[in-house]
């Protein structure tokens, strides 16, 4: 408990933006799903879907 008190008393340091991103698992989860979904899956599926059907 002593640790908690000392942590609360300490002046709050400004956390850098990059650190905030890296410390947020759900933001990382969003990025880790969204990027490959857009650049790999959706783009790839669109490429295949737009192949003209043979007459």
């Amino acid at each position: 408990m002593a640790d908690e008190t000392s942590t609360q008393d300490a002046p709050e340091e400004k956390v850098p933006v990059m650190q905030q991103i890296i410390d947020n698992p759900f933001l990382l989860l969003f990025l880790g799903i969204a990027l490959p979904t857009v650049f790999y899956t959706l783009w790839g599926v669109m490429e295949v879907a737009t192949i003209p059907v043979a007459p």
Binding site: I21, I22, L28, L31, G32, L35, P36, Y40, G44
Partner: peptide, 13 residues
């Protein structure tokens, strides 16, 4: 590790 999260899956191509 962040680079892994962002780009590693794309290597599937």
């Amino acid at each position: 590790y962040l680079l892994y999260i962002l780009f590693l899956q794309l290597a599937s191509a």
